[in-house]
Structure formats: structure tokens, C-alpha cells
Amino acid sequence: MLRALHDAGPAAAILAAGLGFLAYLLAFPAQGVSQHVSPTTLPTVLAACLVVLGALMLLRAVRRPRDDAPPEAPRARPHGGNARVLLLLASCGGYVALLPLAGYLLSTALFVGATAWLFGNRRPLSIVLLMIIVPAVLLVFFEKFMIIPLPGAALLG
């Protein structure tokens, strides 16, 4: 049952995405000069392929969940794994949001500190050193050696 759900979930997602894109593309106004293959022909065909593949996978997952692959060996689920994944994603999202406001140096330092903690680093000195060294080295390398500007801090003008 779990195996069926494991396969049916992504199959349903592919089917739904394919249907969504197909509907969007079929409603797309005709563009460009008369051509043998228009700009939307290939994307439409590919969206239809996603629908077919998603439907086939869904059918297979529902009808014969045990045939396509041997069941996975039971694996110990890491405690709090999903929460850490969500926290890491939140840190990444927060970093992207903070970059233009706080600038590269400060936001990268905070991001590195947060991710080091999420990966299990509990030594304050190690975290502080990482927060100082990593952004500083990257900033000097990219801005001074490669002459590529990194985001400045809008909050500091």
C-alpha cells in the first residue's frame, strides 16, 4: 500500500502538471508568421507526453504496485529528518530574501551559521569561524580577484 502511494504521488503530480501546461498551451494565442512548426508545437506535444506518462505511471502504481521493483529494505527513518529539510529550505529562502537587504557579507554569515547548526555543528567557535571566514574569502575572491560585484546592503544604503 505504501509502495503504491510512493509511486502514485509523483505520477499524479506529473499528470496534473502535464494537464495544467497542456490547457495553458492550447489556450495560447497563435503567434508568428505561418510556419510548419509553430513556437508552441513542441511544448504542447511534450505536455501531452507528460500527461500520457503520468497516467501510465498512475495506472501501474494503482494496479500492480509490487511488480515493477523489489520492495525497499526497511530503513531507519532519521529522527526529525523532515523538519531539518524544511528548516534548511527556510534558511535558503530566507538567505535569498535577505541578500539584497542586508548585503552579501552579513546575510552569508548568518546563512552559513544557520546551516552549520542544521548539519549538527554544536561548537560555537567552529560556527563563528565559519561565519567569518567563508563569506570573507568568497567576497574577496569574487569582488577583488574576479571583479564581479556581489549584492550590497540596501538597508545600509
Partner: peptide, 22 residues
């Protein structure tokens, strides 16, 4: 615990410098 914070910072910075947009 040290490697992945560095990898992530490098990845974000690398994509930013390659494309120059957030």
C-alpha cells in the same frame, strides 16, 4: 557540518555571479 555550509554558500554565490540576478 563544515562542508555543506561551505558548499551551499559557494553554490548560491556561484549562481549569482554566473547569472547576476537573484
Amino acid at each position: 557540518q563544515v562542508l555543506y555550509p561551505v558548499v551551499l554558500a559557494l553554490s548560491f554565490t556561484g549562481v549569482y555571479v554566473a547569472t547576476n540576478n537573484l
